[in-house]
Simulated scan of single mutants.
Amino acid sequence: MAVRFLNEEVSELCLGKPELRCVAATATVAEALTALKTCGETHVSVWICGGDDINGTCLCVGKICAADVILFLCREEHLADPFKAFEAPISDVLPKGSPVVRHLEPNSSLLEAIDYILEGTQNLVIPVQNHHHISNSRKNLLNKQPPFVCTRHNSHEYCWLTQEDIIRFLLNSIRAFSQIATFTINSLNVIDHDIMTVHYNSPASSALDFFHRALTEQTSVAVVDEENRLIGEISPFTLACCDETAAAAIMALSAGELMTYIDCAGPTEDMVQLVKMKLELRNLGGMVELMDDSFHSSVSSSSSCCSSDDEFGSSRNGRLCRTVGSGRHYPARRSEAVVCSPRSSLVAVMIQALAHRVSCVWVVEDDHTLVGTVTFAGILKVFRSVAGGRHNKLEVDS
């Protein structure tokens, strides 16, 4: 039953997907950042259209979020004059190496989609031309869902699928995987012990390589104390809900201070002044100018991160949640880590991750000592292994 389910067409996951905003690959970093702020989404897709190497068609070649821009500004060559970095093409920001975005045909199987993700793909671009791409077994759901509204290129509509979409789809059909759903994450060997940590008092900039890796692998960096107990996390998904001044905070603050700065309630005025003072001591006047420029812009647009207690309400420093020109609110994320036990079941961890909108859940012992993490990719490996029959003989931990 599980194997048949994994052979379902991936287009079924496109039901009700929202429109994906896009920018041209020829855009500058400033233009991409403006697109992010005006569309109210955490990511925009990057497209090349009409090139000879793609036969005059359109191709999605990547995606960009505020975290990409923030880490780009933290490069050594941009610290003295961050404004110059905004003139660079976004191709300089996109990660090199294996593509994080891939096109996939709508009749491809869910198993193929999972295989691409396990190879490093973060998002799948699925063309949807008409409703015939939806199997007959689910056509009755079509009228109950919002219409297909996707990125349009080549006279096609495109759906944008994430790892979270696939995990949610699997959870909704968990009965097909009853042989593994209640197993503990420890018994399934799904805990990843190759984790990235930074000490609470260490400079946040010392973890820049980790931040880049976390963005690529869709995981987070753990902030720990001297006894390796988990205090919190610095997540690229939290950074993606911040503005460009987070780059200045990374270069000025400790890891613990950075957690406070990027927390979704937003930095206090005292924290902002602390960042400026430390930047001036390092002769990074350009970063100070960046903060001043961004502050004036935020006053005119009422832009900031929001409180988790009231996602669309006021933050503790009196400013509203990040609001864009269209009046839409920009969601924010907390730096507080989501944790589970090695004895937690697979389905319980899936529910945690989806409920908190995180792509990794930290595994800790009872004393909060950090053990490892469970990621979406790790969970998908378990479901993928069902097709190979490798979990058929597993026994539940006593």
Rank of each mutant, 00 (worst) to 15 (best):
S45D: 07
L118A: 01
E226W: 12
G266T: 10
L284A: 13
T38E: 15
T162S: 15
C360T: 15
F72N: 07
T219C: 14
I234C: 02
G16Y: 08
P82S: 08
E87P: 00
I167R: 03
V386A: 09
E226C: 10
N189C: 14
E365W: 00
H103C: 02
S137I: 05
A246F: 00
D115A: 12
V361F: 05
K144H: 09
S178L: 12
P127K: 08
A67L: 01
P331Q: 02
S301M: 13
D397H: 09
I195D: 01
E336R: 14
E217I: 00
D52T: 11
T121D: 05
R229C: 15
K63L: 10
I191W: 03
L141R: 12
S235Q: 02
S345P: 00
V224H: 04
A387S: 13
L208A: 00
A30E: 13
L33W: 04
E395K: 13
T245H: 10
V338N: 02
C14R: 01
V61R: 09
C321I: 06
P147M: 05
C241S: 14
E289F: 05
V224R: 07
A353Y: 00
I234L: 14
C14T: 10
V198R: 07
Y330A: 11
H131V: 12
L346S: 07
I250M: 02
L110A: 02
A248H: 03
F148D: 01
K393H: 13
T26Y: 11
L94W: 02
S205P: 00
D209I: 02
P342H: 07
R229N: 14
N140A: 14
F86K: 07
S302E: 14
T34P: 00
L290C: 08
Y330E: 06
G389R: 10
S187P: 08
L208R: 06
V149L: 07
D115C: 04
K276M: 14
E233R: 10
C49H: 08
T260Y: 06
E311N: 07
R390E: 14
N154H: 03
R21F: 07
I114M: 12
L380T: 09
S297E: 12
A24F: 05
S345L: 04
H212K: 08
V275F: 06
G120C: 02
Q179F: 06
L253D: 04
E76S: 09
